[in-house]
């Protein structure tokens, strides 16, 4: 074997090990993310339509802003009234599509009080870039 062959196989095996590590780590992180959905403190319905968000709390109040207490695990039920939207919280690194015909669930626990912007991340028409709302963690 020439030195190039060693480099070649070294790179292939090295990349495979690295990818296996990324794969396993991703699997555990993603599974944890899904398991969280079981144990939420509050469930809020999110209605997305061209081009606005609406949040419906368990007591029936409706709001254009999402209010959550810090440390509370919140479960969002994402419902679309027209086309596909995507609920994106850039500061939390989470995103879930809002697909007509099904209810997607997104669970997370905000820890730090503050104001965070919610953006629509799936192209939904002419007002896509203005489809914003605020998450207020108290």
């Amino acid at each position: 074997m020439t030195s190039v062959r060693y480099v070649e196989w070294g790179t292939i095996i090295g990349a495979a090990i690295l990818f296996a590590y990324i794969g396993i780590a991703s699997w555990f992180t993603a599974s944890q993310f899904e398991a969280q959905a079981q144990e939420a403190d509050i469930t809020i319905e999110v209605r997305a339509r061209q081009f606005a968000w609406e949040f419906i709390y368990p007591d029936g109040t409706r709001s254009a802003e999402l209010h959550i207490r810090a440390g509370q695990t919140v479960k969002l039920e994402l419902i679309s009234e027209d086309v596909i939207h995507s609920f994106y919280l850039k500061d939390f690194g989470i995103k879930r599509d809002v697909v007509p015909g099904r209810v997607n669930v997104l669970t997370f626990t905000p820890m730090k009080p503050g104001e965070y912007v919610i953006q629509c991340a799936e192209f939904c028409g002419s007002g896509h870039s203005n489809m914003r709302a605020m998450l207020i963690v108290e």
Partner: peptide
Amino acid sequence: GVFQAGIPVDFHLQDT
């Protein structure tokens, strides 16, 4: 491209 193959990473990066 490989970054985005990790599912939790893609939750942040998808459609950005």
